[in-house]
């Protein structure tokens, strides 16, 4: 929306705000302001997007050279495929149980992609099929929580950082209040209220107690950026608050937020699995790694494969997201190199 408005807004604001500033200032300074204003004005339409793109391009160039990025990227593409179209990997029904023939039978490592590849669990269900189908719950929860947390935390952090004053005090104390309750504990108490728990209730609970870190990062980043010259220039040109926030400040503070969010994504997946493991996250008809690990832990002696396979995939997923986050951080923040 701001994109459409920019051609009309910028020329008028140059004309309107420019002379008003010039009146109070020495000529050279005014010229400087004008130049800055013109730059900022131009930025709105083309240079800003070009600049943002060039930062993105820079990061992309850096990312392409990192083996971490490729390794985690390929792993994640596989896992996302698994979550989206599990039938690509197996046509066995994960809920099909054959207790008489398959009770805890061990894996057949040479039977690639077949029902008995990873063996059978205590219900006589194919561990391979369940592991493949379990990817969906974890990935959806992880991605949705990350998006929601970024949105909520981002908005809170931006408002607190930009407006300051009493709003900052209130929002910062609110952040502190939520910070006092650990994610797992808050999720436990909140989810206890729902008897019919789905992926979405779990997402909601994790978002409710997960947004604070992003809010703090965002607030800090906005505070450092809002005094920058280009913001002053934009304001001098008469840009509105929304425009300054979303078109000028947001692109500049997105980097650290993206990094924190990507690294946290793996953590949300692990927390979802932990909640399911504690019997208070997802429940049985839903196929999920946490549910399977929880169900098979008492048979660890007789059939360790029923625990190790979903646990291994869970760990791989978390690892992939952490590595991706590391790679993105290295690409976006040259200081850390």
């Amino acid at each position: 929306m701001p994109d459409n408005k920019s051609p009309q807004v910028t020329p008028s604001s140059v004309a309107g705000a420019g002379p008003a500033v010039t009146g109070g200032l020495a000529d050279t300074a005014a010229a400087g302001v004008a130049v800055a204003a013109e730059l900022a004005a131009g930025t709105d339409k083309q240079t800003s997007t070009e600049k943002a793109r060039s930062l993105g391009q820079d990061a992309w160039r850096e990312l392409r050279r990192s083996w971490l990025f490729w390794a985690s990227g390929i792993l994640l593409v596989l896992l996302i495929l698994m979550a989206a179209w599990p039938t690509l990997f197996t046509d066995v029904d994960p809920r099909q149980a054959d207790l008489r023939n398959h009770y805890l039978t061990g894996p057949q490592w040479s039977h690639f992609f077949q029902a008995d590849w990873f063996g059978y669990n205590v219900q006589g269900q194919s561990v391979y099929a369940r592991t493949v189908h379990g990817a969906r719950a974890s990935i959806i929860v992880g991605v949705c929580v990350t998006l929601a947390v970024t949105l909520v935390g981002g908005i809170v952090g931006m408002l607190a950082g930009y407006f300051g004053g009493w709003l900052d005090t209130v929002l910062s104390r609110l952040t502190d209040v939520f910070f006092g309750i650990p994610l797992l504990l808050g999720g436990l108490v909140l989810l206890q209220a729902f008897t019919n728990r789905t992926i979405w209730t779990v997402t909601f609970a994790l978002t409710a107690f997960g947004w604070m870190q992003i809010a703090r990062v965002m607030r800090g980043a906005v505070i450092t950026q809002k005094e920058a010259d280009f913001v002053t220039a934009a304001r001098a040109l008469g840009a509105g608050t929304g425009r300054i926030l979303f078109r000028h400040i947001l692109p500049n503070v997105l980097g650290p937020v993206i990094v924190v969010a990507t690294i946290a994504l793996g953590g949300y997946i692990a927390t979802e699995a932990t909640l399911s493991y504690l019997g208070i996250g997802l429940k049985d008809p839903t196929v999920s790694w946490g549910v399977d690990i929880s169900a098979s832990q008492k048979d660890l002696r007789d059939g360790p494969h029923a625990l190790l396979m979903p646990a291994g995939f869970l760990s791989l997923t978390v690892l992939a997201f952490i590595l991706l986050g590391d790679a993105v951080r290295d690409a976006l923040d040259p200081k850390l190199r």
Binding site: A270, A273, Q297, L300, P304, A311, S315, V318, L319, I322
Partner: peptide, 22 residues
């Protein structure tokens, strides 16, 4: 450190208990 961070604690705990304890 990467391995430790990516294996959830309930997996790590169960495995450690099984291997070292049992």
């Amino acid at each position: 450190t990467l391995i430790v961070v990516s294996i959830p604690v309930f997996v790590l705990g169960n495995l450690a208990q099984f291997v070292i304890g049992v």
